[in-house]
Design a protein around this nucleic acid. Structure first.
Lengths: 214, 214, 214, 214
DNA sequence: GATGAATGAGATTTCATTCAT
DNA sequence: AATGAATGAAATCTCATTCAT
């Protein structure tokens, strides 16, 4: 007796997979070239389909772009929110871990490419930029802010405005992401690894944040 | 003897001013819309000339863009280099001043818009990106690196890799500039001023940099 | 012994019905949208089949269109021809009845839609237009012409050119049909019914046709 | 001394004429092919310009079409309105003259081609169809209706519903126009001239309209 | 026979670039 | 030097048609 797990004919299974393939190809092309400079024909070619096929799945270029953005808003933030809620130790350590995970698990992934796109060409798509900011940036920021408040309340951090400080802490991570995706491998940050950058950034920031000894 | 300062007839002086006017208009348009989305017709309209006139001064869109970039690489860096060389006081204060001046005198000006452009669409113009990085980012970085080395040597700063730390210190300023130019006034950084950001950033970084008390 | 009327299995009978269903759907869509604006996908959807199925029955869009036209050339004209041949009364009454039946039995039916199509987009299909004119318009016209000749011979109608007069009598009916199918319900003929139109048209024409009393 | 009538350089005079040339070419092409089947490239070619030039003068295909329609709504109706108001003789004669002039001065001109277009493809452009109906059909109809009322009041015509009768009188003229523009020269109305048609139509209708002798 | 995913030619539209004046 | 009408290559998008399943 044959295993009936998948009774669909091959091309139908293919159809189910198509949107993902197209989104993947589009993501790569958009990240590589930017929104405006990306030609749909290239996306199609990269996905191994014809121009017309794209339009079976996405109404137009803008919708394709939006779909790419939506598809890459990962659940990672949700997990991080849990971690922070449950954590019970040193705030500095929590903050350091949080920022480092943010880098490795979010910005160093394709989501980083998306974020770069939004920052670079976002103002041509105001609604999308807003949507993205709310879903990704704002939620992530809130997390950092909460840890900062916690540390301040517990006397671990000195008195700073947690909202402003949140921005200050986020900025270097985003900028690292921009550099990483700027395709200027040689001219950008020769001989510096993201790891180096993040470690130096985190250690310095935590030092600067900590309540003055005593 | 009459003052020979300007013997040219008026329309010829106008002619000399033309390129500047065109570059100014192009800068605004590029910053507002991005490279790809900028139509030369809009640049021309903004400058109050016809489309054809643009081509009298610049061979094509790309050359216009390059000219805009070149024209906005100001001499400010040179001045700063002098200041640093002549300074003779506390390294932390020097670094703080340097960073703040960097913001107010460079990134908060139209040059900021150019930098954003380069970061956003630079990889479509690799040679330009490289040129820009060398002329602006590298020279500026070098300055910061020098101050860091000076501070470390003088025992004011703790032992850090000055090249990496330079990046860490530059990143927030650039990111602030990106945000400032991202045309997402509402969703971006509600109720935070660049001033707040810079102050918090600088004070925290300097604290994190300083050699552990004693 | 079982009735052998239909020994085919059901799906095969279905198969036989398919072309009719497709033609019906195509007729509606063509009439509603016009030839050029009709998308085969919509025809298929309307018929509840897939786009590909259309091509099992019709070689291409043009053939489908032609098939629709051919399928709607009804036998009604044949009946009318019989009626006219057998009639033995007043020519004016015969003509009036003929015209009114023409309207109700032909132009007010989907065939009207076809005629509108031919008139509207027929010159993109010259052969089809010719075919249609010969099969429908010419035969119908001939009928009218015969009645006119009969009336003139019998002294009931005044001396007119029967061929020209035929056109004059056909025109209003066709125009009514155009209006009826023109999908401009409000702007076209407010508060006038086809019935009103036909009655007024017939009575006036017959009056105008009749041999001047005496 | 040279005549200074036209100081513009040649190409500028050309520019002024361009829209008219384009509209003329578009009219021909639309009338020949129908709206949907007309390719802008063909219009351009017919006008002796490139595709892009069309877009200097008309935003898109639909706007071009609308412009063609607007440009062909002649003032003729206005003149006819004057004539009717001033006329002081036999209503039947007035009506006959009106209808004949309608044919020769309006429907037999390019405006006829436009009307055919509207009737054929008008429901794809509802607003345009409405606009056209109001400006051309409704005004023309009103004129006929007024003459009918006048004749009925003066006892020249028998008692008919003037609104319905208006339609009955307009229909043949419009249908003649449809036939004329249907580009089926051979199959349509062999050996009948529009002149024949109109004369037979008018004489029959007037006979049918006149108050029964006495 | 039926499906519907895939195709690609062709249409509209945009815009950097040219060139006669 | 300046103009702006004209161009045409290239991009987006549509849809009749094909074909593997």
């Amino acid at each position: 007796m044959q295993a009936p797990q998948d009774t669909k004919p091959r091309w139908e299974r293919r159809k189910d997979a198509r949107p993902q393939e197209l989104l993947a190809a589009a993501l790569e092309q958009f990240v590589e070239r930017g929104y405006a400079a990306t030609r749909l024909e290239d996306v199609a070619k990269r996905a191994g389909v014809s121009k017309g096929t794209l339009y079976l799945y996405f109404a137009n270029k803008e919708e394709l772009f939006k779909a790419v953005v939506r598809a890459n808003i990962v659940a990672t933030i949700g997990e991080a929110e849990q971690d922070v809620a449950n954590y019970d130790g040193d705030s500095a350590e929590l903050l350091g871990t949080l920022l480092m995970r943010w880098w490795t698990e979010i910005w160093a992934t394709p989501l980083g490419g998306i974020t770069k796109l939004i920052l670079a060409e976002g103002h041509n798509f105001p609604e999308l930029a807003q949507f993205y900011n709310e879903e990704v940036v704002a939620r992530g920021s809130l997390l950092v802010t909460q840890v900062l408040k916690r540390g301040i309340e517990r006397g671990e951090f000195r008195q700073v405005d947690p909202v402003v400080m949140t921005r200050v802490l986020i900025a270097p991570v985003l900028m690292l992401m921009m550099w990483t995706h700027s395709y200027m491998p040689t001219c950008d940050m020769p001989e510096i690894t993201p790891q180096d950058f993040m470690e130096t950034f985190i250690s310095t920031s935590l030092r600067g944040l900590k309540a003055s000894a005593a």
